[in-house]
């Protein structure tokens, strides 16, 4: 078991109050697994990914724990985490490729970064050059400034650098989002190859793009409004989703070959609830066509089929589980889901 996250709760401080971005999340990633973390903007997926590596000043750890290779990650202690970063767990943040310091050559930046981790550049330089070659970058990228590289090249260089110490877990946050389709595919295949070559043991790929995950991920974890909705193997999620949110989301994606005149798609009406004061019960309730009385209670994240976990009362009922009686409406907190 590579990564094990247990009931993790993270809030995010804003001017309006604390956003409960990650609200009681438990999952695990096995050795060698590429797990896709999918969800719409604001569902907490980036906060979740970031919190496992670097808890920003505005993020607060309310509870829960994360364990990597049997050792507990001190995620609430940003200083203690230094020991783990890059060596055990590494993050490619969103917009990493536009965040490179424009006045530093890539090689110099790499050396500084490694020094801050207590690694001498010379000891890894040869390996760095070899790996840059592997991803199609000649080793003279070390002598180039970020603006001399294209977006795809910068993305690849950042990925090589962040995995140079062979971390156990790599968290890639929206690494393919700003790229053109052909570059996207190259980067996606590169992620798979990194795993094959053992540069990283396992990976969490965070993206809003389900079709990328269908290509590269072994399993997909779908998040909605700070909670987990569904987790299963990627083929299962794509072909036999159980959570209504996943079903509706996949049904709304246009694919090449789908045209409005032959098969019109529909979106999901409504908006996700605000995470400042999330409603009680299932958070998808207000947008869900199958919602019933029971949904005013918080659904548990249950394994309904082997390796297929879902947080949905309807799915549980369909699976023949006894979900018990619905709470009387008076007991349910009568909050409307969204504004």
């Amino acid at each position: 078991m590579s990564l094990k996250v247990d009931n993790l709760r993270i809030t995010y401080r804003t001017l309006r109050g604390d956003v409960k971005a990650v609200d009681g999340v438990s999952f695990s990633v096995s050795d060698g697994e590429i797990m896709g973390l999918a969800g719409e903007s604001g569902c907490g997926k980036s906060t979740l990914g970031n919190s496992l590596v670097f808890l920003e000043g505005r993020m607060r750890h309310l509870g829960g724990r994360a364990e990597l290779d049997g050792r507990e990650l001190p995620i609430a202690d940003t200083r203690a985490m230094n020991e783990y970063r890059m060596r055990q767990v590494s993050l490619i943040p969103q917009y990493a490729m536009s965040a490179l310091n424009p006045t530093r050559k890539f090689g110099k930046m790499a050396a500084e970064l490694l020094k801050s981790r207590g690694v001498r550049f010379a000891t890894v330089e040869e390996e760095l050059r070899r790996r840059l070659g592997l991803v199609g970058l000649a080793d003279n990228v070390l002598n180039l400034y970020p603006f001399e590289l294209s977006g795809g090249m910068r993305q690849r260089a950042t990925m090589v650098l962040s995995t140079i110490l062979n971390p156990s877990l790599l968290i890639a946050d929206e690494v393919t989002s700003a790229l053109d389709v052909s570059t996207q595919r190259a980067v996606g295949e590169m992620l798979m190859e990194f795993r094959e070559r053992g540069f990283v043991k396992s990976m969490i790929v965070i993206t809003h793009d389900m079709s990328i995950l269908a290509q590269i991920a072994d399993s997909i974890l779908v998040m909605y409004a700070g909670k987990l909705a569904e987790k299963a193997g990627s083929d299962t999620v794509v072909n036999n989703p159980l959570h209504p949110y996943t079903q509706l989301l996949l049904a709304s994606l246009p694919e090449v070959g789908v045209r409005y005149d032959t098969s019109a798609l529909v979106g999901i009406p409504g908006r996700p609830p605000s995470l400042l004061h999330p409603p009680a019960g299932c958070r998808f309730r207000a947008r869900c066509p199958f919602a019933f009385e029971k949904c005013t209670e918080d659904p548990p994240f249950m394994e309904l089929q082997p390796g297929h976990q879902v947080a949905c009362w309807k799915a549980m009922k369909d699976a023949g589980l006894d979900i018990g009686p619905a709470v009387p409406p008076a007991a349910a907190v009568g909050e409307e889901a969204s504004r």
Binding site: V141, V181, M210
Partner: peptide
Amino acid sequence: KAVPQLHKKWEDIDIDELLAAELDREAPAL
């Protein structure tokens, strides 16, 4: 060929041709 699709995998696509398209846009000097 490069468009990620839900129900069709990227496999069996000539990577050379694809990469050529990508690289000549990026930087053939490298």
